[in-house]
């Protein structure tokens, strides 16, 4: 393989692996910016993946080639609904948000596997027919060198991930709603005094994180795993959580971190076919995202600080 092909292969597979992480990490950003810790991202991805696959298998004949896209909408809705449960527990019932998130993860896995057995009478679903595939982007892929590297073999959801990351940045930092959302996460009492409805804002933020988490799971299921079983989502949600922290709770940072983690993941898979990289044991590439996140938190790669009120329920009248 010549260098150009190798680079193109790495970029293409990195972005492919990063796409679900970008969506889910953005979901995490929304939730945590509003002050609700969301360990349940993993569960939201599970329910998204499950819904997308079941929807895809059921309605493939109805929607034809549009099936994966309609399935994304269904998965987003499922993720949104499940996240509301987390919202109710952590906003209204003042539950420990980490514990509630753990419960969401258990619930999503249990519920989806229960339903898979109920619907299909076996432990895993069939493979889907309509899925997201890597395509060359017209015109842009014809640019010499750059076109081969960045615009060939890109799945359409990847482009959407970039767009949504920029939209998230705009919403969070350039709109009144984003300002309110961030203020609720930094100092809910001050926000409350200024007339911001803390509970409502947090519910909306958690719901958005559910939509995006479900989306991430659905994209993963319909582009990478192609079926649903207990082993479909194993840690991608936590990796998205890591990406969010590594990206310092910023939408574009989270996107960058997700791409980097996708890069590490794809290297661990395609690395064995690339000279020079095949001498590095896969274990280093596998643990890289997690070790880097710990280092980032420890301040070796710039200080990463969580939103101040993250993790604490807001109780009116308490100081």
């Amino acid at each position: 393989m010549d260098t150009l092909t190798i680079i193109a292969l790495i970029v293409s597979s990195s972005l492919f692996a990063a796409t679900p992480l970008i969506f889910t990490a953005l979901g995490g950003v929304f939730s945590e910016k509003s002050g609700v810790v969301n360990i349940g991202l993993e569960g939201l991805m599970i329910i998204g993946a499950f819904t997308a696959i079941v929807f895809n298998l059921t309605f493939d004949t109805t929607f034809g080639s549009a099936t994966p896209w309609v399935a994304l909408l269904a998965a987003m809705l499922a993720g949104g609904l499940l996240s509301l449960l987390h919202g109710v527990a952590s906003i209204a019932f003042r539950a420990d948000q980490v514990v509630s998130g753990v419960a969401i993860n258990f619930l999503a896995l249990g519920l989806s596997l229960f339903l898979v057995k109920l619907i299909y009478d076996k432990g895993q679903t069939d493979m889907i027919d309509s899925r997201f595939i890597k395509k060359d982007i017209p015109i842009l892929s014809d640019i010499p060198v750059i076109g081969d590297i960045f615009f060939s073999g890109i799945a359409t959801p990847t482009i959407w991930a970039f767009i949504i990351a920029f939209v998230s940045w705009f919403v969070l930092y350039k709109t009144p709603f984003g300002l309110r959302l961030r203020s609720v996460g930094e100092h809910p009492m001050a926000a409350d005094t200024m007339g911001v409805n803390v509970a409502k804002t947090r519910y909306i933020a958690v719901f958005i994180s559910g939509l995006l988490g479900g989306l991430g799971g659905a994209v993963y299921a319909q582009s990478i795993s192609l079926d649903f079983s207990h082993a479909t989502i194993t840690g991608q949600g936590f990796m998205a959580l890591a990406a969010m922290i590594f990206g310092k709770w910023h939408p574009l940072g989270a996107m960058g971190a997700a791409i980097f983690f996708g890069f590490a993941q794809s290297l661990s898979i395609v690395g064995s076919s690339i000279p020079f990289l095949d001498s590095i044991p896969a274990v280093y590439l596998l643990i890289a995202p997690y070790v880097l996140t710990i280092l980032a938190l420890a301040g070796f790669i710039g200080r990463a600080d969580a939103p101040k009120a993250s993790g604490t329920p807001y109780i009116k009248g308490n100081r």
Partner: peptide, 12 residues
């Protein structure tokens, strides 16, 4: 898997 759901709800 029903039991997983029950455990999740108990934690919840």
């Amino acid at each position: 898997e029903l039991v997983e759901i029950v455990i999740a709800l108990i934690i919840f």
